[in-house]
């Protein structure tokens, strides 16, 4: 008897809930509260934490300026199948916009088709692009990255010297793209000799191991370290542990990198820069979503900048970054409109 009442109540409650949700959906359309689904791949590394923080920051700023934005953040735990389901769920829930950090460049195409067919624009950013042309792309330009990167180094040590190369994760498509752009850029500097190439697996610890073991076989003076993400700190530590000077290299945005660069600079005047794909692209993507939903003409492909910060800037703005944190930049809505969406 009592059970029966309970279940009746449950049905009633569920009915009310569904009705409520539907009512909310209608209300939000009228009040223009933009519900933006954010499909994150995983949240376990500092870059993703920065992305998350910057997306939330952008939403807060937009809310403060009078636009109503609500984020629905989901985390696929590193699994592309889960991400497909999450995108389908967001579509069924009737969100207004979906931002995806794709775990696969092809597997999500169907889910994206569903969303776009339901009238929900989809934007891919962060971990990479997808091959479905219906998705808006906000990506780093890896093709010109190499030129910029190599120039930062040659501006400091000249166009001659001995270098070691630390690549990323073997077999990864993005790794190959970045490496190709380095190779093209380096072709212009025949006097820079890469004497050894190791794979750091995009893992500080692995990069440090490999550099440590080959270090005694390298010439006494190594001028340059070229590296992909997560390697600069480990490589520098390998040189420091062996009692050698740290060669010129470009650092990343992680707390370990930034703090080491500041420390080296204070100790000996060592001068370099930090350059990274910016986790702040999360906030930028939220701004783009709101622009699109507000009726601004948003192009299908946009380019996210790869910021470069000098030691002076790092000291001034990011001097108290914890080792476990990552630096990300803040982009306002108006800045995004002008520099990302309006850029031709």
């Amino acid at each position: 008897m009592r059970k029966n009442t309970l279940s009746r109540r449950a049905v009633l409650a569920a009915g009310l809930l569904i009705g409520g949700v539907m009512a909310c959906g209608q209300a939000s359309a009228n009040d223009k509260t933009f519900v933006i689904g954010v499909a994150m791949p995983f949240q376990t590394n500092s870059w993703q934490k920065g992305f998350f923080a910057s997306a939330k920051y952008a939403a807060e700023q937009l809310n403060a300026s009078g636009k109503k934005v609500e984020l629905k953040i989901v985390d696929a735990g590193g699994d592309a199948q889960t991400q497909i389901q999450q995108i389908n769920n967001l579509t069924l829930q009737g969100v207004d916009f979906i931002i995806i950090e794709p775990l696969s460049d092809t597997a999500l195409n169907g889910a994206v088709d569903n969303a776009v067919a339901a009238g929900i624009p989809v934007l891919a950013t962060g971990t990479g692009g997808i091959t479905n042309p219906k998705a808006i792309e906000l990506q780093n330009d890896f093709k010109t990255l190499g030129d910029k990167y190599v120039k930062l180094i040659t501006d400091r040590v000249g166009t001659k010297g001995t270098a070691i190369m630390i690549r990323g994760l073997a077999g990864n498509a993005a790794e190959q793209t970045i490496q190709d752009s380095y190779t093209r850029a380096l072709a212009k500097y025949p006097d820079i000799k890469v004497v050894s190439t190791v794979y750091g697996d995009w893992n500080q610890s692995v990069a440090q191991q490999h550099v440590t073991t080959i270090l005694p076989t390298l010439p006494p003076k190594v001028d340059i370290i070229f590296s992909q993400g997560e390697a600069a700190f480990g490589a520098a530590q390998a040189f420091l542990a062996a009692g050698r000077e740290v060669p010129m290299q470009v650092y990343g945005f992680s707390g370990t990198d930034v703090n080491l660069l500041i420390k080296l600079n204070e100790k000996s005047g060592y001068d370099s820069v930090a350059m990274n794909t910016d986790p702040g692209v999360g906030g930028m993507a939220v701004n783009v979503a709101v622009a699109k939903l507000s009726g601004e003409p948003v192009p299908m492909t946009m380019e996210a900048p790869v910021p470069v910060l000098s030691v002076a800037q790092l000291k001034a703005d990011h001097g108290n970054l914890a080792d476990s944190d990552i630096l990300w930049l803040k982009y306002s809505y108006d800045w995004t409109l002008k520099n990302i969406i309006g850029k031709k």
């Binding site: 376990t44 590394n45 697996d201 893992n203 500080q204 610890s205 692995v206 440090q208 191991q209 997560e230 700190f233 480990g234 530590q237 420091l240 542990a241 370990t256 080491l260 080792d323 476990s324």
Partner: peptide, 16 residues
């Protein structure tokens, strides 16, 4: 030993 000798940690430290 790793945390101390390497001077920094990351979530994938033990993977290798």
């Amino acid at each position: 030993l790793l945390a101390t000798y390497q001077g920094g940690v990351s979530a994938d430290l033990g993977r290798a």
